[in-house]
């Protein structure tokens, strides 16, 4: 049983590894486990292909975001302005 769990993983572990690999943070052992699991599990295979698609959409869209500090500055300005108004 213990030996088995080293290579065969359950779906919860598989999807997490799948997410990690989208950010290039999965080790080669992780990837091996994931691919083995994908051979056996149709649901995870579907999730994996959707997940890859999501990553490519996100990179294609070239999204930008304000950092948290910039947002904090904005919030403060809004707050002081709305106080002035009252």
């Amino acid at each position: 049983m213990k030996k088995k769990s080293k290579l065969f993983i359950n779906c919860d572990e598989a999807v997490i590894i799948c997410d990690k690999s989208q950010y290039n943070e999965a080790t080669w052992l992780d990837k091996l486990k994931l691919n083995l699991h994908l051979l056996l599990c149709g649901m995870c295979k579907k999730y994996s292909s959707n997940n890859t698609k999501l990553t490519s959409l996100c990179s294609k869209a070239k999204l930008n975001a304000l950092s948290n500090e910039q947002k904090e500055v904005m919030k403060k300005v809004i707050e002081t302005e709305s106080l002035k108004k009252q």
Binding site: L63, N64, L66, K71, M74, K75, I78, E79, S82
Partner: peptide
């Protein structure tokens, strides 16, 4: 709700502007 504007819409508006 002005206090929630930044959290809810700032990134959307930012992308729109970019």
């Amino acid at each position: 709700n002005p206090s929630e504007w930044v959290d809810l819409y700032a990134d959307y508006l930012f992308n729109y502007t970019i």
